[in-house]
Simulated scan of single mutants.
Amino acid sequence: MEPLEPERRVIDAAEALARTLGESDNHTVAAATMDIDGNIHQAVNVYHFNGGPCAELVALGVAATAGAKQLLTIAAAGDRGRGLIPPCGRCRQVLLDHHPDILVAVPAESGPVVRPVRKLLPDTYFFPDANGRRIVRFNKRYHDPVMSGEKTTTIRWDDPIAVGPATFVFEDHPDFAHAEGEILSVERVRLIDLDPDHAAGLQSHYPSMPKDAELSRVTFRLSPS
């Protein structure tokens, strides 16, 4: 996915911090992560032969120290002009367990892209005791219908959503709006069984979705204030 403006800010922050490194081989990678309130937290790695922490893991600790409970996006960049770099396997597993819906910035031929962390770890083991709270993303245009209770269902493709508590985040919202809620049910439906206009809208949103796709109809509600 192409980064939205907030995600580009995270990438820029990681790369800017990385450009200040290079004097010490003990700190060679910078990371930045954004929480659901739009705050950016930065950190660098601590290299050591016995397995010092990567910049991404230090950034998780920095964010937690600042009181951030849920993170939206993370990016890492290398010193000496290496630019954006993907996370190692250990970091991917930690991110998946602690922040299962975080978007990770990685380099691509066309430039930076963001991917759900689960896409970086297909068929992985998931550590259930981490208790990472789920995030469900909505386009910002759905903010008012969701908040008013007018919209209580959404249909998703290739977006595993589980029944239980979740935080609803409105992507690219100028105020980083989000709300606590609950996923009530997840029902499997087929694209070919939907109303043609609805199906056409989904195909526009998911251009790579096959015509015989299986989808999830998700029913949700906001938590009482």
Rank of each mutant, 00 (worst) to 15 (best):
M1E: 03
E2Y: 00
P3V: 14
E7Q: 14
E7I: 00
E7C: 01
V10G: 01
I11A: 04
D12F: 07
A14S: 05
A14K: 02
A16F: 01
R19S: 08
T20C: 04
G22V: 06
D25V: 08
H27I: 09
V29I: 15
A31R: 00
A32P: 00
N39Q: 14
N39S: 10
H41V: 01
N45L: 08
V46S: 08
V46D: 07
F49N: 09
N50T: 14
G51P: 04
G52L: 11
G52M: 11
C54Y: 05
C54D: 13
C54F: 03
A55M: 12
A55Y: 10
L57Y: 06
A63R: 10
A64M: 08
T65F: 12
G67A: 13
K69T: 12
Q70I: 06
Q70K: 11
L71T: 12
L71M: 13
T73R: 07
A75Q: 04
A76W: 02
A76N: 12
A76D: 03
A76F: 00
D79T: 14
R80F: 07
G83H: 09
L84A: 04
L84V: 00
P86K: 09
P86R: 08
C91D: 10
C91S: 15
Q93Y: 01
L95D: 06
L96Q: 07
V104D: 05
A105V: 01
P107W: 11
A108G: 15
E109C: 09
S110C: 05
P112K: 04
V114R: 09
P116V: 12
K119R: 10
L120P: 01
D123I: 01
Y125V: 14
Y125C: 04
P128E: 13
D129K: 15
G132T: 02
R134C: 02
V136T: 07
R137A: 10
R137G: 04
R137C: 02
F138V: 04
F138L: 05
N139Y: 05
R141K: 15
H143I: 05
P145M: 13
T154F: 02
I155R: 12
R156F: 13
R156G: 08
D158C: 06
D158M: 11
D158V: 03
D159S: 14
I161K: 11
A162E: 15
V163K: 15
V163C: 14
T167V: 14
T167S: 13
V169F: 15
V169A: 13
V169I: 13
E171Y: 00
E171K: 09
D172M: 03
H173Q: 04
P174D: 09
D175N: 11
A177D: 09
A177R: 14
H178Y: 14
H178M: 10
A179N: 05
G181A: 08
G181S: 06
E182V: 03
I183A: 10
S185G: 07
V189G: 07
V189C: 07
D195Y: 09
P196G: 10
P196M: 08
P196N: 11
H198R: 15
A199M: 10
A200M: 04
H205V: 07
Y206R: 06
S208M: 07
P210E: 12
D212A: 08
A213H: 03
A213M: 03
E214P: 01
L215N: 08
R217V: 09
V218S: 10
F220H: 10
L222Q: 11
S225F: 09
